[in-house]
Structures are given as structure tokens and as C-alpha cells.
Design a protein around this nucleic acid. Structure first.
Length: 476
RNA sequence: CGGGACGUAGCGCAGCUUGGUAGCGCGCCUCGUUCGGGACGAGGAGGUCGGAGGUUCAAAUCCUCUCGUCCCGACCA
């Protein structure tokens, strides 16, 4: 055997290098010619398509429809909401020339679409009968990031951004929380990532919002990742863009808005949460291929084994499974085992001469490596069951990891010690001031990831003033 | 944008100190033997050494600028 097989860096040794290796070796993404831009390869995109489909179904189920808005945003639009422009202008890419002529007003390539969408909403909304307006857009956006890495922070990324308008503040807040819940369910049910949900501290709030809610995941290396946010915009944008409507009492009033987004960053979260030293581990519900059949043949019986593998493929595919059969004749079975493990296929089905003789096949699960011999006639049913088990087990493992890495700090020394040596989430009281938040950040690089919905009273570790629990972590 | 490291074949790297015919492993192509945990043999293709200037008879190697990547800080989905 050749000793120089392309080797994946160990996650335990160098998570950062491991991640980049894995993205490349599993053929998920490649660097583009412009800094921070990446091509998402078909395999990575297939995962994104499955996430898209799931979210889209949930959006439709909650009454939303899809639409599309322009890529280019005049600078003056961006400037209408003061904190919004302050937050986003520094990281915009600008178009200054069109058709070889200098433009009179430069155009931002959307970093997010609130401003351009509000410009349309001004005309779309005249009466309370036009509300609520529940629209979602699937699009790409561009942010000129200093430091980038595939999926986790790319200059250009794909996402969905929901933009809704409501007659009352209560309704807007309910929408904001409903969509946070939609994200949370997607994380738990499909991505098998047990995110924490809660409120962002004011300093971490979306620029232009009155409140930001977030889903925070804990990655395999103990760092947190913000993945999915939902913003209550209040009347900030409505006032800035002069969106008004006539209510039942014939008063002209400003509506209340929300926006919420979920991006391809989530693919990075999937990799970091579930991946191991052998490669990716995909939750069955998101895996483009649920199970791959690897035929094991020798020269003399190749035709027979091949025929059985093909039959098995048809059988399982017909039973509703997303299957792949690896009929490649160049690579050895061992090579294929490693390759499909690297790609994270949840189950491998082996079929060889001995199995055919016994009327069985071998199922190997990617999450635990466990192997079982299953009679052919019960195979489809067992596979379906196994996939459910894997999905549940991956969520369980991730939850155990999250809980084992969520610690309560009783003193600031302990807090610092945990952040430095253990990482993970640290739960501690916070007095609600920006100074203590900033001091903790300066001292430890940890930020407030969220304020839980249920908060306990306590004493702030830094100031000693009364506070309520916050969840801290170093984040991506 | 600050501090550090690095750009040489698709991928991983050596060569640079001390200038002188561009190398290695994997991958790729061809043929044969293999195939239950990354098989083996033989042959072959592939590079304006990130880019631009400069020094020199001669630059992957020395100098300047520039672009890009990675790690650490400030910002973010």
C-alpha cells in the first residue's frame, strides 16, 4: 500500500487545518479568484439544497411567499437608517462605473436587503388590508470581510432573508419569535445541532433592529457559532423609508417590521459539529446520499456481485431511500470505504460473494462504525430504521457534547480559567452594562452569545453588581 | 487594517542561505495483475516557480512593489 495517501489532519490536533482539509477533500468548496469568494461544489451544494427545501417548506407553512429584489443598492438608500449604514457601509463593495462611465451615485452590492426592500414596500403597502406582508428572498449577498474561511465567513454567501411588515408591534414581535423557532426546529430536526436560542446583547444587535434573537451552536472545538438570527426592526426602517398605511380608524401610521436570515454558514456548522478524524458525518435527513452500496468482488465473480449490487440499489431506491452504488472498478473496497466515510454518507451497504451466498448484506453506520449483517428481505425496513437511529444519535451526541461543555462560573478567575482551558459555553450573571461586556471581551476574547429566555438572578462576576445570566463563549 | 508565516505541476512539499539544465510523493493517462479497510508492476503526460519591475552574462534563488492564502488581534450570517 502506498504510504502517501492524502491524509486528513486530525480534528483533535489542529481543528482549523482539519476543517480546511475536509472542505477540500470532501469536495465541498474551492477558493475563487477574488479574496473571500468560494465556489460551492456539487456535493456541498446538494446539502445546501436540502436545507433550502426544509426551510422553504417551513416558511410556506407559516404563510410566507418568495420574491426577489435587486442586487444593487444606491448609497443614499443605505444611508436612510443611521445605525444601519454605520454597520454595513464599511464592509460594502461598491460599483462606481457602469458601461465605462463613472456613475453619479455609487451602488452597493447588497450586504443585506432591508433598505432596497423597504423602497418597494413603501409602494406596496397602503392599507391595513395589505398587512401582514410576509416575504422571503433566496439570494446571495456580499460583505468585504477582513478574514474569510469557506462557509463560516465568506465574502459572498448564499442565504435566505425574510422581510415582513405588520400592523402592530405585538404581531411583529410574535413573527420574530416564530421564525426563530422555525430555525431552531430546523437545527434540531434536520441538522442535528442543539442550538441555544435567546436574545443578543445590545452591542451584538443587528444594526437597525430594536431586538435581535439568535441561534447559537457549539462547534466541536469548543467555539460558538451564530447561525440564524431573527430581528425585530420595530418602526426604525418604516420611519426611515417613509412606509405608512391607513389603519381601520383611517389614521396614517407606521407599520412594524422584522427580518431574519439563515446562510450557507450553516454548512460550516454542520461540518464542525459532526465531523471527526475520518471526515464528515452527515445527519441522514440532510445527506444527499443516505446510503452507498459498495460491491466487493473478485475477478471470477465480478459480474454476479455487480448484478446483485445493482438489484439492491433499485430495491432500496424504490423503497424511498436516496441511494448510490459505487461500481467503480479502479479502486479497492478499502479505498471506497475511506472515501465515503470522508464524504459523510450515513450508511454503507456492503455486498460480496459471502453475503450473496447467505442472502444477507452488511450495514455499517458512519456515526458509530457499528456493523450488522441483515437478511436481504428485511433490508429496506432495517435501513430506514437505522437512518432514524443515526439521526437521533447524532443529535444526542451533539447535545451531550454541548451540555458537557456548558459550565457555570462562580468567580471571574474561574470564568477566565474555563475560557482559556476548556472553552465551550460559560453561563454567568451579567449586570447588563456594556463596560463589563467589553472588559470580559478584552480580557478573555469571550463575547456574550445570548441572553437566555429564562434568566436567573446573580451577581456580575466583574462588577459585583446585581445581574442576570448570560451565555458567554469565544466565537467564530 | 496591525503582528507573524507562506505562495514552486491538480494536491502536499523540497530546492532559495552560497544565482548556472526545475525536482520528489500523491493524483492524472496507458497496459497488465488485483479487489472483505486507502493494492502492485512497467511506461507516460503535466511547470512562463503568484504577478510586475529591477540587479546580473545568467534569477525559483538577490532587491523593490503588488496580489493572494493561513494563524493571532479589531468587524461580521
Amino acid at each position: 500500500m502506498a504510504e502517501a495517501v492524502e491524509k486528513l489532519t486530525k480534528k483533535s490536533e489542529d481543528p482549523s487545518r482539519w476543517y480546511l482539509d475536509l472542505v477540500r477533500m470532501a469536495k465541498m468548496a474551492d477558493y475563487g479568484p477574488v479574496r473571500g469568494t468560494f465556489a460551492i461544489r456539487p456535493y456541498g451544494f446538494a446539502i445546501w439544497e436540502r436545507i433550502q427545501r426544509d426551510l422553504d417548506d417551513r416558511f410556506k407553512a407559516t404563510g410566507h411567499v418568495n420574491a426577489y429584489f435587486p442586487l444593487l443598492i444606491p448609497e443614499s438608500y443605505l444611508q436612510k437608517e443611521a445605525s444601519h449604514v454605520e454597520g454595513f457601509a464599511p464592509e460594502c463593495a461598491w460599483v462606481t462605473v457602469g458601461g465605462d462611465k463613472e456613475l453619479e451615485e455609487r451602488l452597493a452590492i447588497r450586504p443585506t436587503s432591508e433598505s432596497i426592500i423597504c423602497d418597494f414596500y413603501r409602494n406596496w403597502i397602503q392599507s391595513y388590508r395589505d398587512l401582514p406582508l410576509l416575504i422571503n428572498q433566496w439570494s446571495n449577498v456580499l460583505r468585504w470581510e477582513m478574514v474569510t474561511r469557506p462557509f463560516l465567513r465568506t465574502a459572498e454567501f448564499l442565504w435566505q432573508e425574510g422581510h415582513t411588515v405588520h400592523a402592530t408591534a405585538e404581531e411583529a414581535r410574535a413573527e420574530t419569535l416564530r421564525m426563530l423557532e422555525v430555525y431552531r426546529e430546523c437545527f434540531y430536526e434536520k441538522l442535528a445541532i442543539p442550538v441555544l436560542t435567546g436574545v443578543k446583547s445590545p452591542s451584538e444587535r443587528f444594526k437597525g433592529a430594536i431586538e435581535t434573537f439568535t441561534c447559537e451552536g457549539l462547534m466541536g472545538d469548543g467555539r460558538a457559532l451564530q447561525a440564524g438570527t431573527s430581528h425585530d426592526l420595530g418602526q426604525n426602517f418604516a420611519k426611515a423609508f417613509d412606509i405608512t398605511f391607513l389603519d381601520e380608524n383611517q389614521d396614517r401610521v407606521y407599520p412594524y417590521q422584522t427580518s431574519w436570515g439563515f446562510s450557507t454558514r450553516t454548512i460550516g456548522a454542520l461540518i464542525l459539529v459532526h465531523g471527526d478524524d475520518r471526515g464528515l458525518r452527515l445527519p441522514p435527513k440532510l445527506a444527499p446520499t443516505e446510503a452507498v452500496i459498495v460491491p466487493i468482488w473478485r475477478g471470477k465473480n465480478k459480474a454476479d456481485v455487480r448484478r446483485e449490487a445493482e438489484k439492491l440499489y433499485i430495491e432500496l431506491q424504490t423503497a424511498g431511500r436516496r441511494m448510490e452504488v459505487d461500481l467503480d472498478e479502479e479502486h479497492s473496497p478499502g479505498w471506497k470505504f475511506n472515501e465515503h466515510e470522508l464524504r459523510g454518507v450515513p450508511v454503507r451497504v456492503e455486498i460480496g460473494p459471502k453475503d450473496i451466498e447467505k442472502g444477507k448484506a452488511v450495514l455499517i453506520r458512519r456515526d458509530t462504525g457499528e456493523k450488522e449483517f441483515v437478511p436481504r428481505d428485511g433490508l429496506a425496513a432495517r435501513l430506514e430504521e437505522l437512518l432514524e437511529e443515526i439521526q437521533a444519535n447524532m443529535l444526542r451526541q451533539a447535545t451531550e457534547f454541548r451540555d458537557a461543555n456548558t459550565r457555570h462560573a462562580a468567580s471571574y478567575d474561574e470564568f477566565k480559567e474555563i475560557i482559556e482551558n476548556e472553552r465551550g459555553f460559560v453561563v454567568a450573571p451579567w449586570d447588563g452594562t456594556e463596560e463589563t461586556e467589553q472588559k470580559i471581551k478584552d480580557d478573555t476574547k469571550a463575547t456574550i452569545r445570548l441572553l437566555p429566555f429564562e434568566r436567573e438572578e446573580g451577581k456580575d462576576l466583574v462588577s459585583g453588581r446585581p445581574g442576570k445570566t448570560a451565555v458567554f463563549a469565544r466565537a467564530y
